[in-house]
Amino acid sequence: MHKKVFIHTYYVYIITNKYRSTFYIGVTNNLKVRLLKHKNNILQKKKTFAAKYNIEFLIYYEKYNWIQLAIAREKELKKWRREKKLVLIREMNPTFVFLNSDFE
Rank of each mutant, 00 (worst) to 15 (best):
F23N: 15
N54A: 14
T22M: 15
Y61A: 05
L77S: 03
N41M: 04
T16S: 08
R34E: 14
N100S: 10
I14A: 06
F49Q: 06
A70Q: 09
F98C: 02
K47R: 15
I15D: 13
K85I: 07
I42R: 09
S21M: 13
N30T: 11
F6H: 12
I67H: 08
Y19G: 12
I89Y: 00
V12K: 12
E104F: 10
P94H: 07
F96W: 14
V97F: 01
L77I: 05
I25M: 10
I59K: 11
E56N: 05
H8A: 14
A70Y: 00
H8V: 09
Y64D: 00
V33A: 15
I55V: 06
T95I: 12
A72N: 09
L77M: 05
I42G: 00
Y53A: 05
Y19T: 11
I14W: 00
R82V: 01
F96K: 13
Q44P: 04
I71C: 05
D102N: 15
N17M: 11
T22C: 13
K32N: 13
K79S: 10
F103W: 07
K4I: 15
F49N: 05
R20G: 02
Y11F: 08
V33Q: 14
L99A: 02
W66E: 14
R73Y: 04
T16K: 02
Y24S: 14
Y13G: 03
T28F: 07
K18C: 02
K85H: 07
Y64T: 05
L86S: 13
Y53C: 11
F103S: 03
Y10N: 09
V97N: 06
T48H: 14
I55H: 11
Y13W: 13
Y19V: 03
K52C: 01
L86H: 14
M92L: 15
G26D: 09
T9M: 12
H2M: 15
I14G: 02
A51R: 07
N54P: 04
I71L: 04
L36Y: 04
Y60G: 01
T48A: 04
D102W: 03
K85M: 01
A72R: 09
N30F: 07
N93C: 04
T95C: 10
T9C: 03
D102A: 04
Y60E: 00
R20A: 10
V33W: 05
F96I: 02
V27E: 13
N65A: 12
R90Y: 04
V33E: 14
I7L: 00
F6S: 14
Y53E: 12
W80T: 06
Y61E: 12
I55M: 08
R81D: 07
F98A: 00
F49I: 09
A50N: 09
A72L: 03
S21H: 15
K75C: 07
E74G: 03
V87N: 08
K78I: 12
L69G: 00
E62G: 03
R90P: 03
E56F: 06
K79V: 11
K4D: 03
N30M: 13
T48V: 00
N100L: 03
S21N: 15
I55C: 12
V12Q: 08
N65E: 05
L35D: 06
Y13F: 11
A51L: 02
V87R: 01
G26V: 06
I25Q: 09
Y64F: 10
K45W: 01
K47Q: 04
Y53G: 10
D102R: 09
N100P: 06
F57G: 07
L36V: 08
Q68F: 11
K46Q: 11
N93I: 03
Q68I: 07
E104T: 14
